[in-house]
Computed example of a mutant assay.
Amino acid sequence: MKILHTSDWHIGRTFHTHSTLEHLGQVLDALIEIVRVRGVDVVAVAGDVFDSAMPSKESYALLTSALRRLKAVGASVVMTSGNHDSATRLGFQSEWAALAGIHVVTRPEQYLEPISITDEYGPVHFYGIPYLEPVLIRHLYPGVPLKTHEQVLDFAMTQIREDLTVRGGRSVVLSHCFAAGVMPASAASDVERDITAGGLDVVPLGVFDGCDYVALGHIHGRATLTERVRYSGAPLHYSFAEAEKPRGVWLVELDAGGLGAVEWVDLPVPRRLTVLTGELSDLLEDAAYADREGDWVKAILTDQVRPLDAMRSLQERFPHGVALEHRPAIQMDVGDSSYAERIRTATSDPEIIAGFLSFVRNGVGPTDFETALLAELLTEQSTRAANS
C-alpha cells in the first residue's frame, strides 16, 4: 500500500495580508498529480486543514475541489483536525463523505474507530487522532489524569494498541502535536501556534510505540524523528521563518511485514521567500539581486538611520516586498540616561531637537540636510511669531 503523508495545509492563511489560496491551489494540483502518477492508495492529512475556525467559502471550495480530484485519481483520504481547525466545521457531513472514501476524523472518540483499508496483504488500520485539547476532553474520562497533551496522547495510544492487538494487521496513526526531537519553540514559525515546544506538552516518542507508521502534523518543516515517526511539514511557505525549509510530502509504502520504503517527494514553490540584508540603496541597485525581484521579500535594512518611505522604495524593485526590519549595522552605546537627562544642558531649540533625534535614533543626530531644514523652519517660526 502506498500512502502519501501530508499535513498543515492551512487553507485560508494570508501571507502578510496577501491571500495564499491561488498558490496553495497550485501546490495541491502538484500533490494530486503525484498521487496519480505514483499510484498512491491513501492520502493522510495530519491536521490543520484550515487556518482558522471559521473558513471562508473560497477556502471550502478549494478543499472540496482537492478532495474531489483525489477521489477521481483513485485515492482514499484520511484527514484529522488540528489546533487551527474547528472540529465541528471540518467534520460537518463527514459521515456521508466517508461513503466516498473521504474519511474526516474530528470527534474525540473517533480515534478508536479505525478506517480499515485492505490491500493484497490484508487490512491496514488508520487511527486518526484529532487534536485533543486536554481541558475539553478530560470530562469524558473521569478519574484519568489528562492535564497535558502528553497524557492525552499516551491514553489514546494505549487504547489504540489494545484495539490493534484484537484486530491484528498493520497500522498507521495520524496525530497533530509537538513530539520529542523537534526544534525548540524559538525556531518555530509564527504559524505554529502554541501547543507548545520546549514546555510541558512535548510528547515523548515512546508514546507512539506499537504501530507501523506515525504521520505527524503541526511542525511546518519536514522531520524524521525515527524511520517510522515523521513530520511532512506544510506544503506551502507561510512565514519567512520557513524560507529554508523544503516543501514536499512523504511517500510511504507498507508491505506484508509493515513499513517498507519511505521517500521524500518535493512540491513546487510558487513564489520563493527571500530575506535581503543591507543598506536600502544597495538593495535597490545591486545587480546580484536581479533574480530575486519576483520573490516574496523581507528586507533587513542596515542603514544607520531608517530611510524614509522605505517600503515604497523597496517595492519599486521588488513588487512583492512585504516586510521591513531596521537593524543598524553599527549599534551606538547611548548609555542608560533618560531623554530629559540628555537635553538638560541644551540651550536652544536646535540642540533640544538634535538631542531628541539622537535619543530615538540609536545615538545618531541630525544629518546636514536635517540641520539645515530645522534652521529654516525655526527661523520661519520666529519670523511669524514676531509679526503676529
Rank of each mutant, 00 (worst) to 15 (best):
222 R>D: 02
226 T>E: 07
233 G>H: 06
234 A>Q: 07
237 H>V: 08
238 Y>D: 00
239 S>N: 13
239 S>G: 08
239 S>M: 11
241 A>H: 13
242 E>G: 08
243 A>Q: 11
245 K>H: 11
245 K>R: 14
246 P>L: 12
248 G>I: 04
253 E>F: 05
253 E>W: 02
255 D>N: 10
256 A>E: 07
261 A>T: 07
267 L>R: 10
270 P>D: 12
270 P>H: 03
271 R>S: 10
273 L>Y: 01
273 L>H: 10
275 V>E: 13
279 E>V: 09
279 E>G: 13
281 S>N: 13
281 S>C: 13
285 E>A: 15
287 A>L: 07
289 Y>F: 15
289 Y>T: 10
291 D>G: 13
292 R>V: 03
292 R>I: 00
294 G>H: 06
294 G>P: 00
294 G>S: 11
295 D>Q: 12
303 D>S: 11
303 D>Y: 13
304 Q>K: 14
305 V>G: 02
307 P>V: 02
307 P>D: 09
311 M>A: 02
314 L>G: 04
314 L>K: 00
314 L>F: 06
315 Q>G: 01
315 Q>W: 00
315 Q>M: 10
319 P>Q: 02
320 H>T: 10
322 V>N: 12
323 A>P: 10
323 A>W: 08
324 L>N: 01
328 P>T: 14
334 V>C: 14
334 V>S: 06
334 V>N: 12
335 G>V: 05
336 D>Y: 04
337 S>H: 11
337 S>W: 05
342 R>N: 00
342 R>G: 09
342 R>I: 03
344 R>Q: 14
344 R>C: 11
345 T>S: 12
347 T>F: 00
348 S>C: 08
350 P>L: 12
352 I>S: 11
353 I>V: 15
353 I>W: 09
353 I>D: 02
354 A>E: 14
355 G>M: 05
